[in-house]
Nucleic acid binder design. Structure first.
Lengths: 229, 229
DNA sequence: TAGGCTAAGATTGTATACGATCCAACATCG
DNA sequence: CGATGTTGGATCGTATACAATCTTAGCCTA
């Protein structure tokens, strides 16, 4: 069987990237099983490669591997969800500041294009794709700041945030993000570090406030519902 | 061939842990090749397991895998060295603050024991072991702060700091660290977050100042030495 | 003698085979 | 009828075999 996937190659990294993208777009949800045979069949590679990809994703916290049971898309606990946003609060504001100090016209144009595509996806009803682009915006900021080490951390945190959003997001007020991103873009364009840092800090608080981290994480609730219903 | 290693099991994680420890103790140095066959023979496992371990370490930045060439202990560039300490500067002071807020008597006792073992190793002339424990102290602080996500990041940064130290450390004034760790311990014992944060900030600045990040990274220099000698 | 080419050896990349473990359906017994 | 034990299938864990690639030593040529 040959490569069915036009979007990427069949290396371990390529498969990990495509699976990660699917998680970011919420096409693959927390708790879903990623069978080695099944993934291998989809991408036309042997289990050897799939295992490499899955272990790589496990290292990022995106999947959880249970011995002799297989790989599942991770379901972050409430505590883990909080930790992810606490880590982001430590890393991202300073990174936004550094990005605002260094941002060139090209950087701003690239970020602007990013926001535009995010809007286009939203307009086209592709909510998942918009969500993915929204996360990628944060990674791009780290790239502009020229901080590869921190960029890798933020990329991981964005991935895990996708899982958190899938589990704990409450529907109401869905589209305040693009506004925040636009404001950040302005700060970058003006090379205004103070404003960029503050905006990012506020943006992260906003994101966190839109999560419902009080309820039980979906599994126990479904059990209770089953017992009560 | 059976397990030759009394200190740990022969799983991929166990081998990665033991290799990582060897790097922390500077028994394995940057640039050294980690041949799959050789590592497998030492630990008595097949290449399958070794490959898992090496890829895991590659993900942490500890080893670099070059396709069809093999795995080598990473040699961080000057830029990467700076980035590692910049990331630590973002994460560790706040983490020390949180640890100081939460530290219990048991936590303090455990950290104290840690410092004591560091001193003992230094007194016994086991500089590598002391260095490893010195790094682990920082990881333990994140554990006390009850921040597993950040702890994982710090662990990675500590590992990479070991590589940076191996490459860029300048010998003079070798033992100011234990003093800084003692001061931090006092701040934890007193539950003094402000002091802990400031001490950690200063400690990281001290560490960075003891590195020589201006020279070329060892390879060109050894070539030059060879030509001049 | 220096430079480049070739071939053999060594090392990694990938697929596959086999054993171990888990899970679910079914049968059996109380 | 319900609970428990058993058996078959499915899935994962590990080792090994083979192919692809790189390295190096030796040889040839200018």
């Amino acid at each position: 069987m040959k490569d069915l996937t036009p979007g990427g190659d069949a290396s371990a990294e390529g498969i990990a990237r495509q699976l990660t993208e699917a998680v970011h777009e919420h096409r693959v949800l927390p708790g879903m099983k990623l069978s080695e045979d099944e993934v291998g069949e989809v991408f036309g590679v042997s289990r050897t490669i799939v295992r490499q990809a899955l272990r790589s994703m496990a290292h990022e916290g995106l999947v959880t591997i249970e011995r002799n049971r297989g790989a599942f898309v991770s379901k972050p606990s409430v505590k883990e969800a909080r930790e992810v946003f606490e880590a982001r609060a430590l890393l991202e504001p300073q990174t936004a500041r550094a990005a605002a100090e260094r941002a060139t016209a090209e950087d701003v144009a690239l970020l602007e294009d990013h926001i535009e595509r995010e809007h286009a996806a939203l307009a086209a009803g592709e909510a998942g794709r918009a969500l993915k682009l929204s996360g990628l915006f944060h990674v791009e900021i780290a790239r502009v700041a020229d901080q590869q080490t921190i960029e890798a951390f933020i990329q991981q945190l964005i991935s895990r945030s996708s899982l958190v959003i899938a589990l704990y997001w409450q529907r109401r007020n869905a589209l305040c993000e693009s506004h925040a991103h636009h404001a950040l873009l302005d700060a970058f364009r003006d090379n205004n570090p103070d404003q960029a840092e503050e905006l990012m800090k506020g943006h992260l608080v906003d994101l966190l406030s839109q999560l419902n981290l009080r309820d039980v994480p979906d599994e126990a609730r479904s059990l209770r519902d089953a017992l009560l219903g």
